[in-house]
């Protein structure tokens, strides 16, 4: 149960979900690899932003 609460477990799932959701919305990226790579990059940026937000509210953990 504690394993499920760890970011190392749910973060990759969220990234994958984000990639799958965002990829169809990207126009003009013909090869699926490029489209999914860009979608993953956007998901990563959002995750990074969340991570920085955590650093702002819980700085003592960093």
């Amino acid at each position: 149960m504690t394993r499920l609460q760890r970011p190392t477990f749910w973060l990759p799932l969220l990234l994958a979900a984000g990639t799958v959701l965002i990829a169809p919305l990207l126009p003009g990226q013909d090869p699926p690899l490029q489209r999914h790579a860009l979608a993953l990059l956007i998901s990563l940026t959002v995750a990074l932003s969340g991570y920085l937000f955590t650093a702002m509210v819980r700085p003592e953990r960093f």
């Binding site: 940026t45 990074l48 932003s49 920085l52 937000f53 650093a55 702002m56 700085p59 003592e60 960093f62």
Partner: peptide, 23 residues
Amino acid sequence: RTKTPNEIALTVLLAVLTQVFLI
């Protein structure tokens, strides 16, 4: 070594700056 109040304040400032530039 736990973070001192000044280090914590600076960590917040650096995180805010990084967030702003990331966006």
